[in-house]
Structures are given as C-alpha cells and as structure tokens.
Amino acid sequence: MSASPGVWLAAIFTLAIYSFLYGDNPVYKFSEHLFVGLGAAHMAVMGWESMFNRAWTPLYTKGEWWWSGAIIGGIMLLTRWFRPIQWISRIPLGFMMGVAAGLSARSAIDSQFWRQIQSTVTMKLNTTNNIVYVVIVVCTLAYFLFAFNEKSGLGQGIKGVGLVGQYMMMIAFGASLGSTIMARLSLVIGRLDFLFKTWLGVLK
C-alpha cells in the first residue's frame, strides 16, 4: 500500500466520485463542489495568464498596439457587473459572435463541405463498394432535405430515399457506439489500475 499522501488523496477522490454510481451522497457532493471550485479557479488562472502573457506583455513591452483592442474589449465585458452600464458588455459580445460565425462558416465551407464533395466525386463507380459508398452518401444527404411538401409525389420520393439514408445512419451510429464502448472501458481500467496497483499495491 502506498505511503504517499498524494496517492491517498487521489484514491479517496476516485472512490468519492465512483460512490455516485450507488447514489447521491455527502462524499460525492463534497467532491463535486470542490471540483467545480477548483475547475473554475484553474480556468480563471489560465485565463489571467493568457491575458497577461499574450496581450498585456506584448502591448506593454513590445509596443504591439493592436492588443489594446482585446484588452479594451475585455474591460467592456466586465461592465456586466455594473447594472447602469451593463449594456456596454454587449459590444464585445456582438463582436465575439460575429467572429465565431465567420470562423464557423470558414471551416464548414472548406473542410466539412467542399473537401468532402471533392473526395466523393473522384470515386469511380467500377466496384460494388464504391457504388455502395456513393449511394449511401446520396441517400443520407436526401434525408436532410427539408424544403418540400411531404404529400406531393416528389416529397414521397425524397422521403423514401431519405428513409434508406436513415437506416444507413443507424448502421453508422451502431458502429460508432460499438467502437466507443471499447475505448471508454479502457478509462475505467485506467482508474482501477491506479487503485489496485499504485494505491493498494495488490497488483503488480
């Protein structure tokens, strides 16, 4: 059995979290609240360091003036704490949303949309596997058509093709679940390994 106080502490917290599987209890509540506090604190410290090292230091020591935009924006966000001038925080919020939208659109157009189509159109329909692949892509995409009247002939057709796509998605979901179960079980094994080897020392 380990003599290290750190290992003991880690083992106690590990057991405290696992105790939730039996039901909510004071030990879990304590660990949960501690973890939430530590987590928020750790992120606040990281945030402070990021602000200080990435924005303030280059601005102050190297004269990289453009960082002032981020710092002014950040101070404007903090007006949230003062009700009469709370509205000022909306200005950087609007900016953040815009930049997030630009970034989302950018990556969606390039890697998620264009490149996926590019990889598909190069496939030659000369093997059964390739034909299956292309048919599945088409059927799945048809499931995501929304703007049609379900009662019309075309609508019925799209629904039919989309239904095939839905079954194909179920195959994909089943495969993802099957492969993920195995990966997640290894996480439990990792914790048990810590408890039985590092802490208790009953396994070599």
Partner: peptide
C-alpha cells in the same frame, strides 16, 4: 482577440 475576450 477572441481568445483574450473569452478569458475575460
């Protein structure tokens, strides 16, 4: 800037 603003 977005990263710094997220820190704030």
């Amino acid at each position: 800037w977005r990263v710094i603003l997220a820190s704030f």
